[in-house]
Simulated scan of single mutants.
Amino acid sequence: MSRPPTFTPPSCAQSRRLRTTRGDFAVLDAVPHGEVRGTALLLPGYTGSKEDFIALLEPLCAAGYRTVAVDGRGQYETEGTPRQETYAQSELARDVLAQAAAVGNGDTVHLVGHSLGGQIARAAVLLDASPFRSLTLMSSGPAQVAEAQQLKVKMLGDALATLSMAEAWEAMRALDPPEDATTDGEALRRRWLRTQPAQLIATGRQLATEPDRVAELAAAGLPLHVLSGERDDTWPVPLLDEMAQRLGARRTRIEGAEHSPNTDRPERTAAALISFWDSL
């Protein structure tokens, strides 16, 4: 589970509802005070939320980029349904196209997807690349997650079929390592309880079965960036290196970061995003 250092956004960001043709989505919308050089749309990962990007908002704004971090359908503060079919990857990808249209106002946007969010972002680009200026895949690999992670998401899906979200939370916390006990548990618990279990079951299945679509993405003709930490147990870093080569993408490894460079090393992650966007 991603653990943002805080759930309180900086002063440059407004918590609001983004109205789209596919419904309303909860977002953190950070707007620069001066000239806006571009707009970025940020998609969180599995069990995550828009708050995972809080530490990126201020530096990206300071560089002139309006940055919109979103809760996807059924994630935290965006409503969902109890029906797993509503979280099919194609449906979530169409949500992203609607979000991009709403924030872009006719201009293309820089799309960033973390982990599961990267695979949803890729699916959106493969449906229609025209709304996007670039795509950054952050700690998001070419196909299904590593075998150990497949087992974890299956165990979670099986548990959610019989346990309430509150019961599942208590079971997960009992398995947490001691160093995680001081994390802002109440905010994380609140996020967990507001996430739709059907969303977790459906997207967990996607993570465990996602096919390799690297060749399709390479043919989309969009500027691409593969960014990760220097260690990752969800997709091995050498696999991400290979994917970047296949894509002809810019490759960034964030020193000192693991699966969530956006929370592990936000300053370096923001600098890497800014450098990529500035180069375009």
Rank of each mutant, 00 (worst) to 15 (best):
V103I: 15
Y65D: 02
H114D: 06
I201D: 11
P10T: 00
P236V: 13
C61F: 09
F25N: 01
G34Y: 00
V96Y: 03
P197S: 01
A161Q: 10
A208P: 14
C61W: 08
D107C: 06
D232N: 14
Q75C: 11
A129E: 10
D233V: 12
E186M: 15
L193Q: 07
L116T: 02
L207K: 03
R250V: 14
R194C: 08
L18D: 04
Q14Y: 13
N262A: 12
R194P: 00
R37D: 11
F132C: 14
A171Y: 13
A13E: 05
W277P: 04
T183Q: 15
P211M: 15
E79D: 08
L175W: 08
E58Y: 02
G48K: 11
L111E: 02
V226Y: 02
L240C: 04
E58W: 05
I120W: 01
L273K: 07
R194I: 04
A187S: 15
E216C: 12
G221M: 09
T108Q: 12
A55Q: 03
V214L: 04
T8C: 06
V112T: 06
G64F: 11
L111T: 03
T234S: 12
L273N: 07
T39R: 08
G118T: 14
T182C: 07
R190V: 04
R213N: 04
I201H: 09
F276L: 14
V68T: 05
D128V: 11
R265Y: 09
L239E: 14
A63I: 08
G38T: 14
P223A: 14
T263V: 15
S260N: 10
Q99M: 15
L188V: 00
L160R: 04
S228K: 10
R191F: 05
L28W: 12
K50L: 05
L227V: 12
G117P: 04
L160C: 05
L273Q: 10
G204D: 10
E170D: 15
N105C: 10
A257N: 09
R122Y: 02
A244T: 06
A93N: 03
K50N: 01
L57G: 03
R133Y: 10
A218D: 10
T263K: 01
A62Q: 07
L240R: 01
P238A: 05
A161L: 12
A219L: 03
S275A: 15
G185M: 06
V70N: 01
L222R: 11
K152C: 10
A161G: 13
A174I: 11
V237C: 04
K152R: 12
Q14C: 05
L280R: 14
G23S: 10
Q84C: 04
M243K: 02
P4M: 07
K152P: 05
A166E: 15
G64A: 05
A100Q: 09
F25A: 07
Q119Y: 15
I254D: 01
M138V: 12
Y46M: 13
E230D: 10
I120A: 00
L57Q: 07
T234N: 11
V109L: 09
